[in-house]
Simulated scan of single mutants.
Amino acid sequence: MNNTNTDCFVSVILPLYNDSRIITIVVDEIVSILKENYQFYELILINDGSEDDTTEQVEDCLHKYSGLRLINLSRHFGTEIAISSGLDTAIGDFVVILLPDCDPPQLIPELIRQCQDGKDILIGVRKNRLDDPLWMRLGVNLFYWTCQHLLHIPLTKNATQFRVLSRQVVNALTYVPDNYCYLRLLSAYIGYRSQTFTYTPIKRYKKVKKRGLIASINLGLQIIYMNSAHPLRLASYLSILASGFNLLYMFYIVMVYLIKNKVAEGWVTLSMQNAIMFFFISVILGIICEYIGLIFAKSRGWATYYIADEKNSSVFIVERDTYNVVNDSKDIAI
């Protein structure tokens, strides 16, 4: 065992969704690394409504390894919510978040060491996106540029879910009562001492899990609408601009009436004006509807997630003689 890190409790959160083919290998790697470097640890496996035999595979691991906890969510809520449920139950001094199909567990000891040296948040950043299709890379670059330069949303470009959080940061994150929290952005909003690290994701599947076009667009819109008031400000600017055009057109009508003796009907101009005005109105209504929909969703008061059941390892994490329990209290003065 490496004695440099044994004085801390490490929690690892692993969100799972239809990962039965790789879960045994991943758990074996993570547990081996934790056991080699730390005396106190826990591996929290969040089953996010998997439709395969992920639950059965994890239950087999519970009987084989120590320090494992399984949380079965009642349905599929998504990776962000699954990680949030893990943060709510993690008890470690440092909490590691990683995805089973692409994040390398071998980096955990070095990342924990950096946190012990004074960092509260370590954020994983993909080295490149060469595996993504061209349309995805172009869309991602445009999205990050828009967020950083136009909307002033502090997103870290190419940031992943792989990160390490101190106990203070975890407490701050779990205090935020937001059903639509985006953890990669929320980590930046709460402050604390943060640092990025670049790594190359691994591939445990031949076909890497990818977010589709529609899902990517929905996620991008949710991030923008939930974290910036700039779209509403844009709607205000468009309203002012449309009103200005309308005033100019009214002035144009008055001038034509005063200067010309015979005024043409001008159906082309009238049609163009109506088209422009309805375009602005449609854009403004679309943006307002998105915000109203989010306000409605928040007003329902539903819980962020629901847990179906929770199971723990049947194996002790440490030897009995290391427990902090007093067997004989006759010499203790109270």
Rank of each mutant, 00 (worst) to 15 (best):
K262P: 08
I288W: 14
L234D: 00
I123R: 07
C102S: 12
A303L: 11
D48P: 00
A159L: 00
V268M: 10
I81P: 05
Y17K: 09
V31R: 05
L151H: 05
F143L: 10
V315L: 09
I317N: 11
I30K: 02
G244K: 04
S243Q: 10
F40W: 05
D178I: 02
W135C: 12
T200M: 11
V256N: 10
L238Y: 07
K203W: 09
P154L: 07
S329V: 09
L138H: 07
I334K: 10
E51G: 12
L98E: 00
R113Y: 13
T4F: 10
E59A: 03
T156V: 14
T322E: 11
E110P: 03
S329I: 11
R137W: 01
S228A: 07
P15D: 00
L142I: 04
Y323G: 13
I202W: 06
A242T: 12
T196M: 06
I202R: 06
V140P: 02
L150D: 01
F162E: 07
I259T: 10
A275M: 12
C102V: 08
L73T: 10
L122F: 06
L68H: 05
H76K: 14
T200L: 13
R204H: 05
W267D: 10
P177F: 06
I153S: 01
V176Y: 12
T6F: 01
I22Y: 01
S236I: 08
L142G: 01
L185N: 15
V283H: 03
L62E: 05
G78Y: 03
N141D: 12
S166N: 03
V315H: 01
D52N: 11
C289T: 09
L34K: 01
H63K: 08
S282Q: 00
I121T: 09
R320W: 14
I153G: 01
T24E: 15
E80I: 03
N327F: 14
G301F: 02
I112P: 01
T6G: 03
V326R: 04
D103L: 09
G293A: 07
I81D: 07
R204D: 04
L45K: 04
T79S: 05
G301E: 04
A229C: 13
N2M: 06
A188D: 10
S50A: 07
V268P: 00
G220M: 02
I83R: 09
K35C: 04
C102H: 07
L151E: 00
W302K: 02
T304N: 02
V208I: 14
D331A: 10
V12Y: 08
N3A: 13
D19Q: 15
G286C: 00
V268T: 09
I332F: 04
S85C: 15
Y249G: 02
L258C: 14
T146W: 06
T160E: 11
I307F: 05
G139V: 10
S187M: 15
F280G: 02
L234I: 13
T24P: 03
N141A: 12
G49D: 05
R21L: 14
D93V: 07
F143H: 10
L122S: 05
E29I: 02
V125D: 11
L73A: 08
T55E: 11
N179P: 01
P154Y: 04
I334C: 13
I83G: 01
L248E: 06
K330T: 15
F143G: 03
D331Y: 13
N5V: 09
R233E: 12
L111P: 00
K119F: 15
C102M: 13
K311D: 03
